[in-house]
Every structure is written in structure tokens, then in C-alpha cells.
């Protein structure tokens, strides 16, 4: 990580540490939120940052994951790991369903299709019968906590947050490995110039579809984590604004840079939390929640305009191939020709 990232990262960790010193439960909650959103924003980073896909319906995929996991747990007593798996598979299926017709078209179509799917899912969930397990507008209740055998609530929360952080670490590792492999190069090539990528023999359709499907699966996992944390789901929490919060995290952090995206996630969440606390002390002639959403919009625009690479810019794909280049350079093979160029 470079300097800006390092400094900001230290500040973020310090703030979390201060929260932890004041109130452990609050800090755990904060850490859970960062882990949850980080998984979601990493999945968007895979889709947008690496592959250049415009998924504007991320919240829909999270909702699918959350509800599938929630229903399986509440109605069928399915154990937690299976619920998470089912959530990933269900979200992936929705992702593939949207992706199959759209990723071969212009980027606009995918953008419109995903945003519509996201809203469709919310409306569907709102209109489920209220007397069924889905709960309609009243929400889904009765999700079984995975660590019910731990009696102390703080310890239970600690265990669950720890598990979430572990899952986040797994997702981070996986996407980092994908990104720093020949696959990462192909995805970035598709993002930078799809026609050129095709012209060097990359089956771009397959890659884009897989990227969207796997990204959706990861979003589904995030959704399942959400469901088992709150043990209650309401369709109206899955509004499009969540999607764009996740977009801001990726854009601020730096596309195709996983560490940057996690940093961006932490910053956005901390700003959110700190304004929530500050609003009790500072009276502004503004409604803070609406103001935050305005800020989300403004940040998107400003970052795209003045720092499109984000706080932590992307790095070259790190594979063993660089050793070969280094050796060649040491052997003096990389001499500029005669000085006439440049």
C-alpha cells in the first residue's frame, strides 16, 4: 500500500480502537458492518474494478442472499453453513440470469437490467404474503442465531463478528489471488478495451458472465451474514441507496485495488457512524440522513472528476512474470534504442 493508503489505514484502525476502548459492543457492531460492506464492495470490485461491469443492483443480490438464508433458517432449521452456501448459489443464479442476455450488449443494458432487477426483488419481497415465513412488508422473523449455544450475549456477538471477519478474509484472499494472476490481467484487459481483448483471443463473454455470477455469489454471502447478524429482515432496508453506498466505497478506495476498496469501505462507514453520533451534539438546519445521501452523490461525481483512480490507485498485476523481466533488465537487455525515441 502506498503512503496515502497507509496513513488513512492507520487513522481508520485508530478510530476503531478508540471506539473499542469506549464500548466493546459498539465497536464489534462497527467491525461487523465494515466486514459486511467490505465483502459487498469487494464483490463489486471484482465486477466493476476488474471487469468493468456496471452492476447497479448489488443490493438486490444481497437481498436474495439474505432472504434465502433467512427463510432456510427460519422455516426449515437449515444449519448456518448450508444457509450461507444456499445464499451464494441463489444470488449467483440471479446474477447469471441477468448476465446471460446483457453482458454481450453495451454497458448500458447491464446497468439498466441490474438496477431493475434490484428493484424487482425488493418489490417481490414486499408483496410476499405477510402470513408466510417471508413476511411481506412486516419482514422476516425467526432466523436462528448460529451461536445460540453461547450464553453470554457479548461473547456470542464476538464469535459471530469474528466469523464474519474470517469470511471477509477468505473473500479478500480469493479476490486478491484472482486479481494477481493471469486471470486478473484478462479481466482488466476486458475492462480497458473489450474489442482488443477479443482480438487477442479472450472469450470475453464467458469472463464477464463468470465475473458477474461470482460477484453475485459473494454478494449473496454478504447477505447471509447480514441475515444472521440481525436475525430479522425487512424488504425496505434493501433500497438502491445501499448499492450506491457500495459504489462510493469502491470509487473512493480505488478500483481494482482490494486493499483500497476495504479502506474506502471503512472510511464511508466511519463517516456514517461519526455523523450519526455528531448529529446529537451539533444542530444543523439539515436532516443528516438525507444530507449523507446527497454527499454520496456528490462524492461519486467529485471522485470521478478529480481522482478517478481513487485514494489508492491500482497496481500492476503481481505474478512471477516480473522476476523474468527484472532478470532481463539486470542483464542489460532493456536498453533504449539509439535515443531517437522519446
Amino acid at each position: 500500500m502506498d503512503k496515502v493508503g497507509l496513513v488513512l489505514g492507520i487513522i481508520v484502525v485508530a478510530i476503531i480502537a478508540v471506539f473499542a476502548a469506549i464500548n466493546v459492543s459498539y465497536a464489534l457492531d462497527l467491525i461487523f458492518f465494515i466486514a459486511f460492506y467490505a465483502i459487498a464492495s469487494l464483490s463489486l470490485n471484482l465486477e466493476y474494478g476488474y471487469t468493468g461491469l456496471s452492476n447497479f443492483g448489488k443490493v438486490g443480490f444481497i437481498a436474495v442472499g439474505a432472504y434465502i438464508a433467512g427463510v432456510l433458517s427460519a422455516a426449515f432449521n437449515v444449519p448456518f453453513p448450508l444457509c450461507v452456501l444456499a445464499a451464494a448459489v441463489a444470488a449467483a443464479a440471479v446474477g447469471a440470469f441477468v448476465g446471460i442476455p446483457t453482458v454481450k450488449l453495451r454497458e448500458d443494458y447491464l446497468g439498466m437490467a441490474t438496477i431493475i432487477i434490484g428493484e424487482m426483488i425488493r418489490i417481490l419481497l414486499r408483496n410476499t404474503p405477510t402470513n408466510s415465513v417471508w413476511g411481506g412488508v412486516f419482514g422476516l422473523r425467526g432466523i436462528k442465531p448460529p451461536f445460540a449455544f453461547i450464553k453470554d450475549p457479548l461473547a456470542r456477538q464476538f464469535a459471530y463478528v469474528g466469523l464474519s471477519v474470517f469470511l471477509f478474509g477468505l473473500v479478500y484472499w480469493l479476490i486478491e489471488r484472482w486479481g494477481n494472476s493471469p486471470l486478473g490481467r484478462v479481466l482488466k484487459a476486458i475492462r480497458d478495451d473489450e474489442l482488443a481483448a477479443k482480438s487477442v483471443g479472450k472469450f470475453t463473454y464467458r469472463y464477464k458472465l463468470l465475473s458477474l455470477t461470482l460477484g453475485s455469489a459473494i454478494a449473496g454471502i454478504a447477505g447471509a451474514l447480514y441475515a444472521f447478524y440481525f436475525l430479522y429482515l425487512n424488504p425496505d432496508t434493501f433500497i438502491p441507496l445501499i448499492t450506491f453506498m457500495i459504489w462510493v466505497m469502491v470509487i473512493i478506495g480505488g478500483m481494482a485495488n482490494n486493499a483500497g476498496v476495504v479502506l474506502g469501505t471503512a472510511i464511508v462507514i466511519l463517516i456514517n457512524r461519526i455523523t450519526q453520533i455528531a448529529k446529537d451534539y451539533i444542530k444543523l438546519p439539515l436532516e443528516p440522513n438525507y444530507f449523507q445521501a446527497m454527499l454520496v452523490g456528490l462524492l461519486i461525481i467529485l471522485f470521478l472528476m478529480f481522482r478517478p483512480q481513487g485514494l489508492v490507485p491500482e497496481k500492476p498485476v503481481n505474478t512471477p512474470s516480473w522476476e523474468v523481466l527484472e532478470k532481463a533488465e539486470e542483464e542489460g537487455r532493456a536498453k533504449p534504442p539509439g535515443g531517437e525515441e522519446q
Partner: peptide, 11 residues
């Protein structure tokens, strides 16, 4: 497109 979403949220 993302910028237009930013504009949309702001408005």
C-alpha cells in the same frame, strides 16, 4: 452512468 447516478442521488 455512475456519475449520472451521483447526480440522481444528489437531486
Amino acid at each position: 452512468m455512475v456519475a449520472s447516478i451521483g447526480v440522481a442521488l444528489f437531486i
